[in-house]
Design a protein around this nucleic acid. Structure first.
Lengths: 166, 166
DNA sequence: TCGACCCGGTTGACACATCAACCAGACGAG
DNA sequence: CTCGTCTGGTTGATGTGTCAACCGGGTCGA
């Protein structure tokens, strides 16, 4: 309620920066994703899961932790894991503990080892190197601030009232 | 082939910046989208179409131009337009020219006029103001460079050879 | 004039995300 | 003990995006 008053829409500079940002996002994302899909038959989502699993102890995690790491909703996680299981990239494995663990298969391991270096190279080529170290650091800081601001706003907006619909 | 050689994966600083950037994206996007959905029943895609139409001459455009403006595939456009038509936000209208025109309805106009100011205010609050003018300008420039780099790379990668699969 | 292609647009099948409902074990209060 | 509730996880319905195939009117060369 304290931010409205500069006019109903963004002014030209604001607009321009915002649109540049959006365009960069879309371009980067579609480029990376298309490459991943065409060369390796993996989606961005597959990649995210495989990265997390391959970095984990013994290549195994609970679905819950995967959810925390990726910020996905649990139902999305469940659906996607069943699809990946069907394709042989992961396996759900019952263990002595309460809940089953998600395990990366040899095939999954091979897939990510095959594509990770190229992904990294692309990130460098199109993002890291274009920004350069100073701008990169700036962006990182600003990004964290944005996230922080939104976090604060959201928890402000709905303090633990009875409403579960936050 | 000239970028590989710094190691197969990103180093710590690169990694950190990249992840901050990704997180900012996801946070911003889900926040904005959720707000739009809950308060106004519009998706980001609906919004994009309505913005373009409402800025156009007479609130009407060819689907083709919408496609150019939004960078969507034609099939996605077609599907989404039929859905929006069913909801009464737009109308497809045959005219004397070759192809039908997409027209924004009164209802669509009302919807976007209702939500646009709040969208703008949120963009200011969480993006423009957090970055501040200098960093915003930097980001805009860097973003354009990224887009430019990818463009060059892609047209380089597949010059107008016979392959239509670019 | 005829056929080959191009181009804007539609369609159908399928992959994916989201939402709400459900399930089962754990846990705490009575 | 048992009833309510919480939590991690699954399921099904539905909305959305993508791919490939198709359609119909133009255009161009033979």
């Amino acid at each position: 309620m304290d931010d409205v008053g500069k006019g109903p829409w963004l002014d030209d500079d604001e607009q321009k920066a915002w649109r540049s940002y959006l365009l960069m996002n879309k371009t980067l994302e579609t480029h990376m994703e298309r490459h991943l899909q065409r060369e390796f038959g993996l989606s961005k989502s597959d990649f995210e899961i495989l990265v997390n699993l391959s970095e984990a102890e013994n290549g195994r995690m609970r679905a819950f932790e995967l959810g925390r790491a990726t910020q996905w909703e649990k139902s999305r996680m469940s659906h996607h894991l069943t699809r990946m299981e069907k394709r042989g990239l992961i396996r759900r494995e019952a263990c002595q503990a309460r809940y089953p663990e998600v395990v990366i298969t040899a095939e999954g391991q091979a897939a990510i080892e095959a594509c990770a270096p190229q992904q990294a190279a692309r990130i460098r080529e199109f993002f890291v190197d274009v920004f350069g170290p100073e701008r990169l650091a700036e962006l990182g800081k600003a990004g964290d601030e944005v996230v922080e601001t939104i976090r604060r706003h959201e928890e402000n907006d709905c303090p633990p009232e009875v409403r579960g619909t936050c």
